[in-house]
Design a protein around this nucleic acid. Structure first.
Lengths: 166, 166
DNA sequence: CTCAGTGCAAACCGTTTGCAGAACG
DNA sequence: CGTTCTGCAAACGGTTTGCACTGAG
């Protein structure tokens, strides 16, 4: 969707990774990788399949999943889970090194934001608990600007319990 | 498992919540609530069922799920998701108001830690993106002290891609 | 006595897997 | 050519749902 150059080089890296691992570089793998690399969104498997279908690429669901595994292992793609019941995938390329996610509970849109204090938090937790961190995830859930403008209200869903436990 | 007093009052609150909503207070609901309130862990549905079985409580899986929904709605229990493919539940009672989670990728143990800088992070992200936050989640994944002592190593899983994208 | 809750089993849904046939190297 | 991949469909596992029956209020 965005620049061709960026996605091209990410694709090249992926192909290089495959060759390095002695794995075949197939048309299907390239097609799936291209979809992910060319998007600046956080795609679900379903969305990836839709794009592939639009492009007249006939690729089985299993192959999409298997290719995504490879993309994640190659570390060119991050796997995300916003508790929607399915996974999302974002290219690590064309993105800020560390970013966290704002997830709208109404429309599901995802915005990225930086949280430079996280390494310090991580280091402190590590020191205090003898924990060796490898990665973190920070998500803030709420209402995006657009949904607020559209007058969406946070539905208290279940009624609030009389006693606020804090 | 821990104090009887704490769990008792949480249970009372839950029963009060049910009555307030005009919902029946049943033995099954009390039994499930007791298991969650009496634990200071982050229980999966499976673990809850195991405890119920030990206590000779014969309660269907569907009822456990339905009661957990009520507990979450009552806001006496938090739903957690560490990307394991299933949910976990923690009582909000007998816990620090705000705590985040250290998740061991080897043994799955979960440790709580405070991150007092999060409200500021949340406020900044909200201000800069017009986002209205309702809740957040921060998890740090890695190796717990015990697993490190046991000599567990982070297996690079897939081989590292030659180019580090940052 | 009535309406909601319960248990069972089937349905669901995202993901994984087994296997025969196709393709990369 | 052998090894790995692909596509299909069936299997999987956590969760949800439909329905007859039980039980709380």
């Amino acid at each position: 969707m965005t620049t061709g150059t960026r996605s091209r080089s990410a694709l090249d890296l992926f192909c290089g990774y495959l060759r390095e691992q002695g794995l075949p570089v197939t048309g299907q793998r390239e097609a799936v990788a291209r979809v992910v690399f060319e998007s600046d969104a956080h795609l679900s498997v379903d969305q990836i399949e839709t794009v592939l279908r639009e492009r007249k690429e006939r690729i089985g669901k299993a192959t999409v999943y298997r290719t995504l595994d490879l993309l994640v292992k190659s570390r060119l793609v991050n796997e995300l889970d916003f508790g929607e019941g399915f996974k999302r995938y974002e290219p690590r390329f064309s993105r800020k090194a560390m970013h966290e996610h704002l997830v709208c509970e109404s429309c599901g849109s995802v915005t990225e934001f930086p949280a430079p204090e996280l390494p310090a938090i991580e280091a402190r937790a590590a020191r205090e608990h003898g924990f060796r961190p490898t990665r973190h995830r920070l998500e803030i859930y709420g209402l995006c600007a657009k949904c607020q403008a559209d007058g969406v209200e946070i539905t208290p869903e279940g009624i609030i319990c009389p006693i606020e436990i804090v």
